[in-house]
Design a binder for these strands. Structure first.
Length: 493
RNA sequence: GGGCCGGUAGCUCAGUGGUAGAGCAGGGGACUUUUAAUCCUCGUGUCGUAGGUUCGAUCCCUACCCGGCUCACCA
């Protein structure tokens, strides 16, 4: 996979133009405490587009995805066993993966996302905050924060309008119990880069912040991270940028405490799933990058997620509206013209038979789409996956598991036809022979082909029409089809 | 309440300072050894409301109305 072939969007150029001379560090990130969905991907893609715009004008750019793996677990993701409540307040990098596949809770969500980023050809450094803390990347800024505790507290109080409690500290140490929450700060030992604190149980303990035995509180961490990583640009979702929000505190902290210029910013709006509203990891309503890459190529996903303008809310529709999106995408990037709905039909009809599909496409005037069989195979893969998983019912053609109710309405004549067809079909027949068999049998019986085929669709699909019958039956398997036709012909419905 | 984003043909949306477009749906027609597909043809709607800037605004500014989302550290 290579990087995007799409042109750099205009809005990204404008953003880049507002940033000064490089070198630049563009950072995006999220706390992997639940599924990382395409809403989160929007942030990464905004960052990527700005990176590309910067590079286009010759800047040196480092692009980072900062996974907040040191964050405490606040809520248990859907599907995670209830026993995990005992890990509430523990860093998600230190909690085991419920499925036992990955090395931690955080990693179980991060790994699939990272894989998708790489599949998209993204040139991005994926950093894990717990590793940064352990390696000492944040040691200096942590010391600085601790030395300016009162100033930071003042900013927190003023901006959020809430009084930080007694024992508040910009640094959140991890107790020997594993918990980050409930600890009260006592004092800072700058020479040893340690803090002394009292645990929930009232025990006095010590944490070494040069070794990752804790983390900065979220709002302070944001500003500290800018300085520690040299960040010059970061996109934010609108939840962070409301007044009194985390960007407000971080801006002040950066300027007044860390002496670091506030990085360039871009506010993006949220993605919604058509008909379902905003994505929500905690409600399990998400679209994942990985599953999206099974129905479209990376650049299509870029377009889908970014939309025309990421500062605007966007409804993502991967069901009924998807074919049109794909048609526009294909036209935009110069892919051979063929309606996506037609590809879906052909894909469902021919299954793995790429040659047959190519033939059918040529026949219906879409020869260009069949020219490159490698590309065609890929297109059919996307179309088939879409049809099976996301398409509206009327565009799915899959043999039902049971005899459809519609079959019971078939008349005597039609049943006879189906019975004859069942006898004549042979497992060695190819799609064309099957088609011929179906057609000639109808002729012989004096049934209008239209009715004969309708009967077939009723028996196989439970609907009045369907894809071209010969290839479809070849794809579904002659044996199962014969069995079905026999039972319908025999009146077992 | 603050913030952000919308309010354009039945539906979904695009659009530009100079008197508005697409897709779908719908109507009509053509073609085809079933299906699917394809082709031709038909769209005057106060561009949310009221003001303002301008020679001229749907597109710029202001106010208001309606809707969605977001502010409890889940983009």
């Amino acid at each position: 996979m290579t990087e995007s072939a799409l042109p750099v969007p205009g809005w990204a150029r404008e953003v880049a133009a507002s940033l000064g001379e490089g070198p630049h560090v563009v950072v995006t990130g999220i706390s992997p405490s639940g599924h990382i969905h395409i809403g989160n991907l929007r942030e990464v893609l905004v960052g990527e587009a700005v990176c590309r715009a910067l590079r286009e004008r010759g800047e040196e750019v480092r692009f980072i995805f900062h996974a907040d793996t040191a964050d405490p677990l606040r809520k248990i993701a859907p599907g995670v066993p209830k026993e995990y409540e005992r890990y509430l307040g523990h860093p998600i990098a230190k909690i085991p993966d419920p499925a036992g596949e990955h090395e931690s809770y955080a990693e179980s969500f991060l790994a699939p996302f990272e894989r998708a980023l790489h599949a998209m050809g993204m040139e991005i450094d994926v950093l894990r905050s717990h590793e940064l803390y352990e390696k000492g990347v944040y040691t200096e800024v942590t010391r600085e924060a601790l030395e300016h505790t009162e100033e930071l507290r003042r900013i927190m109080n003023e901006v959020t309008g809430r009084e930080m409690p007694e024992g508040w500290s910009p640094y959140v140490p991890r107790a020997s119990s594993g918990k980050l929450t409930g600890n009260r700060f006592v004092r800072h030992l700058p020479d040893e880069h340690k803090v002394v604190f009292v645990t929930e149980e009232g025990r006095e303990e010590v944490a070494d912040y040069s070794k990752g035995e804790g983390k900065l509180g979220w709002r302070v961490e944001l500003a500290a991270r800018w300085k520690a990583l040299g960040v010059t640009f970061e996109p934010f979702g609108k939840d962070h940028t409301s007044r009194g929000g985390s960007t407000d505190t971080a801006d002040l902290m950066a300027r007044e405490v860390f002496g670091y210029p506030v990085p360039g910013r871009y506010e993006y709006e949220w993605l919604q799933i058509r008909g379902l509203g905003a994505m929500s990891s905690s409600r399990g309503i998400v679209l994942l990058p990985g599953e999206m890459l099974e129905i479209m190529p990376p650049d299509a996903l870029r377009l889908l997620v970014l939309g025309r303008d990421p500062s605007r809310a966007l409804d993502v529709d991967v069901a009924a509206g998807f074919p049109r999106f794909m048609d526009e995408y294909r036209a935009a990037v110069g892919e051979p013209e063929v309606p996506f709905t037609h590809l879906a039909l052909v894909a469902q009809t021919f299954g793995e038979d790429i040659g047959g599909a190519a033939e059918a496409l040529r026949h219906s005037g879409y020869g260009a789409a069949a020219e490159d069989e490698g590309r065609l195979a890929r297109d059919l893969y996307y179309a088939r996956n879409w049809a099976e998983r996301w398409a509206p019912e009327e565009q799915r053609f899959k043999m039902t598991g049971e005899v459809p109710g519609l079959a019971s309405q078939l008349g005597e004549e039609e049943r006879t036809y189906l019975g004859i067809v069942a006898e004549r079909l042979g497992t060695e027949m190819d799609a064309e022979e099957i088609q011929e068999t179906l057609y000639s049998a109808a002729r012989e019986l004096g049934i209008k082909p239209r009715r004969a085929f309708a009967a077939l669709y009723a028996a196989l699909l439970g609907r009045k029409s369907g894809p071209k019958a010969g290839p479809f039956i070849a794809g579904a398997g002659v044996e199962v089809v014969r069995e079905r036709l026999r039972s319908v012909a025999g009146g077992e419905v």
